[in-house]
């Protein structure tokens, strides 16, 4: 006689305990033309994101990483399998609003996600939708603008801001919902290097200081260095999953999926091929500099 090993809780939470996001055998395909088999954009994704984690999802164009991101706040619904947000099934329409409140999303193009023509009104958009009282909205807006360092731009018009500033406003707009988790869908793809830097610094701070769970979809390897965990996607599947050190120490595997290693790792590899005894897992610029200095010190004259 068969007995179920695990009794599922009524609230529906599966996977790892205390996971904010869970995908179980998630499959997705866009509608295909008649007679053709629909191509699978996501093909059996299983993953969990723990509370307070900073997870970066890497993949070349068309790997399905953005499609995956859109599943985490019910913008897209799974064709097969299921996605749980704080134990809530995204397919349940009654929960959609609660899910979107728990998981905010920042998109690639800052221009296309700013609704209002004044910065603080835009930041207020989400709490207004949630029906917060106006003093509470004021507090949330001031706080969110402070976190992204845009307090003095509250009364400005968004179209006069730089790309990086616009994206910071967009982040503030999501922060004002006070979400538990924020999914960033290639937030720096349209920014110049300075704007990129400021946005990435804010993302790190959100995770480090405010305890927000962060999922960062990106194809810039350098941005992924600061993450706790990297997930590499290719053809709609998860092909690598581990810490940045583990993943970036396998440059050949990464290259097979169309990805580079960060500049620091490429430099260290080059040095190693030339006979220097340097480690390959010094990822940040500072670590890399230290590693090279100590290798130079050890090297016989």
């Amino acid at each position: 006689m068969e007995m179920p090993d695990i009794i599922e809780p009524v609230s529906g939470g599966g996977g790892v305990p205390d996971a904010v996001l869970t995908a179980e055998n998630l499959t997705y395909s866009y509608r295909a033309r008649e007679g053709e088999l629909p191509p699978r954009v996501l093909d059996g994704i299983d993953m969990d994101v723990g509370r307070g984690a900073f997870v970066a999802v890497l993949g070349h164009n068309g790997s399905g990483k953005s499609t995956l991101a859109k599943h985490f706040n019910a913008v897209l619904l799974p064709v097969g399998g299921r996605v749980l947000v704080e134990g809530m099934d995204t397919s349940d329409e009654r929960l959609t609003l609660d899910i979107r409140r728990a998981v905010g999303m920042v998109f690639q193009n800052p221009d296309n996600q700013i609704v209002a023509s004044v910065v603080e009104e835009d930041v207020a958009f989400a709490p207004e939708n949630l029906g917060c009282p106006s003093e509470d909205i004021r507090r949330r807006v001031d706080e969110a603008l402070r976190v992204v360092g845009m307090s003095e731009y509250g009364g400005h018009s968004p179209h006069l801001l730089s790309g990086g500033q616009k994206q910071r406003v967009a982040i503030a707009g999501v922060l004002a919902m006070e979400p538990k988790c924020i999914v960033f869908d290639e937030p720096t793809a349209m920014l110049d290097p300075r704007g990129r830097g400021s946005v990435i610094r804010i993302i790190r701070r959100l995770c480090g200081e405010l305890g927000v769970t962060v999922v960062l979809i990106t194809h810039h390897m350098d941005e992924a260095i600061g993450a706790d965990r990297l997930i590499v996607m290719s053809d709609g599947r998860i092909v690598m999953d581990g810490t940045p050190r583990e993943i970036f120490s396998r440059p050949d595997a990464l290259a097979a999926y169309g990805l580079d290693t960060p500049e620091t790792v490429s430099l260290l590899r080059g040095l190693r091929e030339d006979g220097f005894d340097v480690p390959l897992d010094a990822l940040t610029v500072d670590e890399c500099a230290d590693a090279i200095l100590s290798a130079l010190a050890v090297r016989p004259a």
């Binding site: 859109k70 706040n73 913008v75 609003l97 979107r100 409140r101 905010g104 999303m105 998109f107 193009n109 221009d111 296309n112 996600q113 609704v115 603080e120 009104e121 207020a124 958009f125 989400a126 709490p127 207004e128 939708n129 949630l130 029906g131 917060c132 009282p133 106006s134 909205i137 004021r138 807006v141 707009g173 999501v174 919902m177």
Partner: peptide, 23 residues
């Protein structure tokens, strides 16, 4: 743009005028 904006608005919990407050 309209398409992207609609997705962004929805993911910021926009669901029409009902129950909406103002700052």
């Amino acid at each position: 743009r309209a398409d992207e904006l609609a997705v962004a608005m929805e993911s910021r919990c926009y669901h029409g005028g009902e129950g909406r407050t103002r700052m």
